[in-house]
């Protein structure tokens, strides 16, 4: 399989997805808007990293 360059936006999204998955049924059942998830999305952007320039090295993210 061809190796793809790691995209740090995507890596961050995978982390956020772990937080969002357990709550997805709640928003559906209660028909409520997920303000809580939005706070996490806003916070993630404010991490201040330039994700577009990132590559992953053996010890983790190199930014």
């Amino acid at each position: 399989m061809l190796a793809e360059k790691v995209n740090l936006y995507q890596e961050l999204a995978k982390e956020l997805a772990k937080e969002f998955a357990p709550k997805a049924a709640h928003w559906d059942e209660t028909r409520t808007y997920c303000h809580e998830n939005i706070k996490s999305l806003v916070k993630a952007r404010f991490d201040g990293h330039d994700y577009s320039q990132g590559i992953r090295g053996p010890g983790g993210f190199i930014l």
Partner: peptide
């Protein structure tokens, strides 16, 4: 953005 959307959609369509 599309890469992000795919990962989030696997977990929560609404988000």
């Amino acid at each position: 953005c599309a890469l992000v959307i795919e990962e989030i959609a696997k977990a929560c369509t609404l988000t």
